[in-house]
């Protein structure tokens, strides 16, 4: 029961901060709220019993991606113009589409007959994951590393100042 209360608390935090991310007037605040969302997702991972993923979430997302995004905000946006409207004119139709998508998804979820089983208590240790990763998923792992390398080089080339540019 306590687990359930904890789940709901974290869920509410997640949703609220997510709403903040998409609607905050100040883009910097949105960035910070994104951090909060990612943290609560990590909490949800913990509740679901995947500690390793929670750790990866915090390290990679909060430590890596979020930092990157905040840097980008500071590079491109003058923080002084925080009063600029942050949502575009297509707000109404966007709300409609979002609600319809939500409705469709909920309808699917509720309609589907799912075996009423509880989540298992089996804990997966990082060493299990590591073994699985390097025994069964070596090729995708290596491909992923190449992808990251390509993304790295691509990003450098794209973001580098062109010659002759001030």
């Amino acid at each position: 029961m306590s687990e359930r209360i904890l789940f709901y608390c974290i869920a509410v935090i997640t949703i609220l901060s997510a709403v903040g991310v998409v609607s905050a007037r100040n883009i910097f605040h949105a960035g910070l709220l994104l951090g909060s969302t990612l943290f609560s997702i990590a909490g949800l991972y913990l509740i679901l019993g995947t500690e390793f993923l929670a750790a990866v979430q915090v390290l990679l997302y909060v430590g890596g991606i979020l930092t990157l995004i905040l840097f980008a905000i500071m590079l491109t946006v003058k923080l002084s113009d925080k009063s600029i409207k942050q949502t575009s004119e297509q707000k109404g139709i966007s709300i409609c589409i979002s609600i319809v998508i939500f409705g469709i998804l909920c309808g699917c979820i509720l309609k589907t007959e799912m075996a009423n089983i509880s989540k298992s208590g089996i804990m997966t240790t990082p060493s299990d994951i590591g073994k699985h990763l390097f025994v069964y998923e070596v090729l995708p792992f290596e491909l992923l590393s190449i992808l990251l390398l390509v993304a790295l080089i691509g990003a450098i080339i794209l973001a580098r100042k062109e010659e002759g540019e001030k």
Binding site: I15, A18, V22, S98
Partner: peptide, 10 residues
């Protein structure tokens, strides 16, 4: 859905 809304309006 919240994410979709964000993509469409930000």
């Amino acid at each position: 859905s919240i994410g979709v809304y964000g993509v469409l309006t930000r």
